Computed example of a mutant assay.
Amino acid sequence: MSDWKPKRFWKLATVAERDGSFAVELDGRPVRTPAKTLLTLPTRPMAEAVAAEWDAQEKEVDPRTMPFTRSANAAIDKVRVQHAEVADLLAAYGDSDLLCYRAVHPAELVARQSQIWDPALDWACVTFGVRLITVSGLMHQPQPESVQTQLSAQVHCLSDFQLAAFHDLVSLSGSLVLGFAAALDWRDPDEIWRISRLDELWQEEQWGPDEEAQALAELKRQAFLHAKRFFDLSS
């Protein structure tokens, strides 16, 4: 039974507008989420992306090939019912942001982190009016309460669909700042992804690449780029 997959039963997936939102229909019947909620999307482009995934299914439905549908399901079934809790979870990344914990040595890595990570913190300062504290080493250094409050407010302002995408931008990069940087188009998302992997790329330079680690990193990169596309289609 674990190998069972639903069969394609429809001929055409289409988009229908419903009270300012957009639904995906299969031969006129609306698609529902795993929790049986009507799958309604905030924008037509997002609904069209979801409909295209359903249209691309052949004999069997393979959720692995439907990232926009999966993200939309998560926004409706998971984020919508616990928006505040998800926002709090992500805002907490700002108190231990990847960009704030710097190497003690070697000097070349210390310099590279400063060169590549400081501009992102400078951008956050200009954009949100807060300056995150950086420290040498891994000992946790709490950020000022005013900084945490301001960044948390920004996270809580995101819509359910934006927050679903933002969850992946932050958790995959390990940085609230880089999550915002990707969402708000500070730089190309691929470049932001590379910024988040500065330490791993440094290790590869020193010891050579690990094929298994590189394969996993590529999967995460693709998920990060998808999250950015989903965020952009959310409004």
Rank of each mutant, 00 (worst) to 15 (best):
D95A: 04
S159A: 05
Q115C: 09
S173I: 12
S152Q: 14
Q143V: 13
D122N: 14
P144H: 03
L89S: 13
S114R: 02
S146K: 07
Q148N: 12
D168H: 14
A107S: 13
F128L: 14
A91Q: 10
S159T: 15
D168Q: 05
A103L: 06
F180C: 12
H140A: 05
A103M: 07
S175H: 05
M139R: 10
L90Y: 02
R112C: 02
A91I: 07
V110D: 01
V130R: 07
V155L: 14
D88I: 00
C157K: 03
Q115V: 05
L98E: 12
R131T: 15
C100T: 06
P144A: 05
G137P: 04
A153T: 10
H105T: 11
P106D: 04
A111S: 14
C100I: 06
V135R: 01
Q148T: 12
Q150D: 01
F161A: 14
V155F: 15
S159W: 15
L109R: 01
F180E: 09
L176Q: 08
T134I: 04
S146W: 11
F180I: 12
I116R: 09
L158N: 08
D88V: 02
A91L: 11
R131N: 05
F161T: 15
A165S: 08
H105Y: 02
M139V: 14
L132K: 02
Y93L: 14
Q150E: 08
H105V: 09
H156I: 12
Q154P: 08
T149S: 07
V155W: 13
C157I: 10
D168W: 12
V147Q: 02
Q162I: 08
A92H: 04
T127W: 14
Q162D: 03
L90V: 00
A91V: 11
P142A: 11
F128V: 04
G179L: 11
F161C: 10
D160W: 10
L172I: 12
L178E: 04
W123L: 06
Q150R: 13
Y101C: 01
